[in-house]
Design a protein around this nucleic acid. Structure first.
Lengths: 236, 236
DNA sequence: CAATGATCTGCGGGTTCCCGCAGGACAAGC
DNA sequence: GCTTGTCCTGCGGGAACCCGCAGATCATTG
């Protein structure tokens, strides 16, 4: 049994290494990579079955790395180990996990016990382990209150990329008006409106929505980057 | 001599603690806070002269904490200790450092030696120490090539907040047309234009500029948050 | 002084956005 | 069947945007 660690912070890397060794005595090799790009290569070379991986790394972040790894072998078990439970990351992860794959998502702030437990649960028992806090974020998506539906999130990303309504319409095969309707929904969900209708201090709703999404951590730079690549890709 | 550590990651916190104790044997107390808000309170209570502090923390980030601390006692010596050298952070820091204050900016990836050296230089010799990599980013601002001037950065932030041209004009006491001119400059610097002028795949320049700035790390969520607070403040 | 350049400002137009109103498609329920 | 609800679509107008053209200010330089 071999475990691959993908993490760019040296301190956390050695901490993880130690945790893996003590939590999984049946493991006979622990490999390390220090960013997503190297992680992918190592995983391919190793045919790794068990990976624990950071999100937010410099070269290529965890989500992108995980996506290509899972594309090659969907049965790989991956434990994500992240600083934050931002909606953008949580959404990003659950968007790429293949049908029936087992994975975990634990925060770096959780205790060593919980981490070790998660390692055993995910790797040995093929059980998905998601931190309570992360779970909360995940469900906001469906909950009636605020929290964006998939359609709304999609359009948010397109807008954040800087596309026009018309472009979005043709990409998504929708009428212009439909796109604008969805934008309207999005504005409501994000509670974006013209503010003091007076004469001053108005907003450009489109960019304001992006700002609010950023501040609420619904969106972040790496989500935009991922969308950008997808855009370049299907530009053929 | 007392040193205050403000850092939300437990591992890094204890690593820092150790580094401070060995690098500064003349130091007789090392205190710790685990986010910006608590750090401010602790600094005030302690009348701390020496602080080493993380940027990107949950409750209140390092830049905001440093700003209030420096407002109360501008002679406080602060060593920033950050994961990234994003332009947004570098700019954020140099924007708040008071006249003649001494500070440092080192990356978490630098060696233990360099860290200890920086601790001694900043705290004992009142010498500013800025990592080479960070320095590079800092100078891009003035360098002829790309890299935004202050005027351009200012307008970028206002746009990213979601303000209208007109609103920006009245806030900055400029004519509408001037604001639009600066936007034009900004678009050029960010290399943002309509792309394939054909019929498809056009951009909304305004939001596209924000997207590009995000991807180039000129802007990030906390920069937007800071701007948002400033906006609320001078709304009187 | 004249000349050059950078910056601010106004005008005018074409385009895009924001959004109310209104009609059509389709499903669920009394 | 009729109603109610949700979603997509078109029309039209007012506002905001992008931007070329042009005049005005101000600093620098030969």
């Amino acid at each position: 049994m071999k475990v691959l660690i993908v993490e760019d912070d040296a301190l956390h890397r050695s901490y993880l290494n130690e945790a893996v060794r003590t939590a999984l005595p049946e493991c006979d090799a622990v490999l390390e990579s220090e960013n997503g790009r190297l992680g992918e290569i190592e995983a391919r070379k190793l045919r790794a079955e068990f990976i624990v991986m950071d999100l937010q790394m410099s070269e290529r972040n965890g989500i992108e790395a995980a996506r290509t790894i899972w594309r090659e072998r969907p049965d790989t078990k991956i434990l994500f180990w992240s600083n934050y439970s931002d909606e953008a990351y949580v959404r990003g992860v659950s968007r790429i996990v293949p049908e029936g794959a087992t994975y975990g998502y634990v925060l770096k702030s959780t205790s060593e016990e919980r981490l070790k437990l998660a390692l055993r649960s995910v790797f040995l028992e093929s059980q998905c382990v998601i931190d309570r806090e992360v779970r909360g974020i995940q469900q906001k998506g469906m909950g009636s209150g605020h929290g964006l539906s998939d359609a709304e999130y999609e359009i948010l990303v397109d807008v954040a990329l800087g596309l026009t309504d018309k472009t979005i319409a043709s990409r998504k095969k929708l009428s212009l008006r439909t796109v604008q309707n969805r934008l309207q929904q999005l504005y409501e969900k994000l509670e974006v409106y013209q503010e003091t209708g007076d004469d001053e201090s108005r907003y450009n709703l489109r960019t304001r929505a992006v700002a609010v999404a950023l501040m609420r951590r619904v969106l972040n730079a790496s989500a935009v980057e991922r969308a950008e690549r997808d855009l370049q890709d299907d530009a053929d």
